[in-house]
Amino acid sequence: MSGIHIFEGYLEKIEDLTQQARVAEVLKWVMDKFPELKPKVAWNQPMFTEHGTFIIGFSASKQHMAVSPERAGIEHFSEEILKAGYEHSQQLMRIPWNKPVDFSLLKRMIVYNRLDKAECSTFWRK
Rank of each mutant, 00 (worst) to 15 (best):
T122E: 11
A21E: 15
S104T: 05
V23E: 06
K28Y: 11
I6L: 09
F48I: 04
P96E: 07
H51D: 13
A24S: 14
D16F: 10
L11R: 08
K13V: 10
K107E: 00
R71D: 11
H64R: 07
L27A: 03
G52I: 04
A42R: 08
I14G: 08
W43T: 05
F77D: 02
W97D: 07
P46K: 02
I81G: 05
M93H: 04
K99N: 08
I55D: 00
K40L: 12
H64A: 12
P69W: 04
K99C: 07
P96N: 08
L105V: 01
K40S: 10
S78Q: 15
Q45M: 11
G9E: 07
H5E: 15
E12Y: 10
R114V: 02
I74H: 12
I55H: 00
E80N: 05
V30C: 08
L17K: 14
L11H: 11
Q19G: 05
F48A: 04
K38N: 11
E119A: 13
A118K: 15
W97H: 14
P69T: 03
L37G: 07
R108L: 02
G3A: 01
K126T: 07
S61W: 03
C120L: 12
A21C: 09
E25S: 07
D116M: 15
W29Q: 06
E8K: 12
F77K: 01
F103I: 02
E75L: 15
L115N: 08
E50Y: 15
A24H: 09
E87W: 08
Q91F: 12
F48Q: 02
H76F: 08
P35N: 14
L105C: 00
R71K: 13
T53A: 13
E8P: 04
F54V: 08
Q63N: 10
V67S: 02
F123P: 06
E70D: 06
V111I: 13
K38V: 12
S59H: 09
F34S: 04
R22N: 06
G9H: 10
E79H: 13
Y10W: 10
A66G: 14
R114C: 01
V23L: 12
K38L: 09
Q63C: 06
A60N: 00
L37D: 01
A42P: 01
A21S: 13
L17I: 10
W43R: 10
K107H: 00
F48P: 01
E50V: 04
I81W: 08
S2F: 10
K28C: 05
P46Q: 03
L37Y: 01
H5L: 12
E12P: 03
E36F: 15
S59R: 06
T49K: 05
S104C: 02
F103H: 06
D32K: 04
K33C: 02
N113P: 05
M93Y: 09
G73A: 10
V30D: 06
P35I: 15
D32Q: 11
K117F: 11
V101F: 11
K117M: 09
V30A: 03
V67F: 04
E79I: 12
Y112M: 01
M47G: 12
D116R: 13
P39N: 07
E15K: 14
E79D: 13
L27F: 03
F7Q: 00
K107G: 00
Q19S: 10
P46N: 06
P96T: 06
